[in-house]
Structures are given as structure tokens and as C-alpha cells.
């Protein structure tokens, strides 16, 4: 099996996996980073969202080869201690219900607000619409993104 060097959360890790292994499973099964979640495996739910060179991407449909040489950030690496403004907003608003989708929601929101710190309502909804929340915590997701924006903007 080929060996890949994966740069994640600031350190280079090496993994032996078959070349079709999605980044999601490399993170979860081989690097013990379980923050990114499996929800669909086909880029439909956003539970697996991580950052690739600062862009929000679906780690379930990216392979090791596609991410080599790029910087990957997972929810575990978004901040040292949960202090990223998006994480803070998520806590203040008490967004999670079951919580399963929330790491993906936060990663999508963080990358979005980085590019667009002053979004309007339609922009927030369109940025977040790729992330399903089966518990339908959408009202609070929206509120938390607004709140984080007010701090990042």
C-alpha cells in the first residue's frame, strides 16, 4: 500500500492506505481525528467538512493523492481550545441538538466567514445549505453564523 504524507493541523503525518481511501477515513480511522463525521460519503451532507488550504471541502470525496502537499485543517485544529469565533458563537447560541453535524457546520461557517466577514442573510443561507442538520437546528445555526460574523467582520 502506498505511503502518503498528509499535512493536517500543522503537522505532517504519514499513512499507509490504498490510493482510493477518502481523506475522511484517513482522518477518522488512521489519524484518530474523529471530529469530521461520516454522513453520506457522496458530498451531500457536509458532515465531513474540513479545510483544504482554507477552503471548505468534503473530505469524503477527496483522496490522499488529491490533498498531498496541501494544508488540511480539521475541527480539532480550528483552534487550540475551542476559542475560534465560530466555535464561540456556536457555544453561546447553544446550537447543537444531537451534535453530529455540528463540526461540519462550524468548518463550513469558518471558511465562509473568512472570505465574507459581512454576509447578508441570503449569503449565509446559501453558504450553509450544503450542510444537513437532521435535527433541524437551522434557526440556531443561522443565529450563530450571524453572531460570529459580527465578531469577525
Amino acid at each position: 500500500m502506498p505511503t502518503y504524507q498528509i499535512k493536517v493541523n500543522g503537522s505532517v503525518r504519514s499513512v499507509d492506505v490504498s490510493e482510493d481511501t477518502p481523506l475522511l477515513w484517513i482522518l477518522r480511522d488512521h489519524l484518530d481525528l474523529v471530529g469530521a463525521k461520516y454522513g453520506c460519503g457522496i458530498a451531500q451532507c457536509g458532515a465531513c467538512t474540513v479545510h483544504l488550504d482554507g477552503q471548505a471541502v468534503r473530505s469524503c470525496v477527496l483522496t490522499a493523492a488529491q490533498v498531498s502537499g496541501k494544508e488540511i485543517t480539521t475541527i480539532e485544529g480550528l483552534s487550540e481550545d475551542g476559542s475560534h469565533p465560530v466555535q464561540q458563537a456556536w457555544k453561546e447560541v447553544d446550537v447543537p441538538q444531537c451534535g453530529y453535524c455540528q463540526a461540519g457546520q462550524i468548518m463550513t461557517a469558518a471558511a465562509f466567514l473568512d472570505k465574507n466577514p459581512n454576509p447578508d442573510s441570503a449569503e449565509i443561507k446559501s453558504a450553509m445549505q450544503g450542510n444537513l442538520c437532521r435535527c433541524a437546528s437551522y434557526s440556531r445555526i443561522y443565529k450563530a453564523v450571524e453572531k460570529a460574523a459580527s465578531r469577525m467582520g
Binding site: 474523529v34 463525521k37 475541527i75 447543537p96
Partner: peptide, 20 residues
């Protein structure tokens, strides 16, 4: 108003779920 007791773990991606 009382905040979810697992909030910190959820927003930092700590293992909590069966799949984890």
C-alpha cells in the same frame, strides 16, 4: 437557560458518538 453539557466537546470534535 442551561447550556448543553457536551457543548465544548461537540464544537471541538472530541469523540462522543458510537461511530467515534
Amino acid at each position: 437557560d442551561t447550556w448543553n453539557v457536551d457543548l465544548d466537546k461537540i464544537v471541538t470534535g472530541q469523540p462522543l458518538f458510537g461511530l467515534d
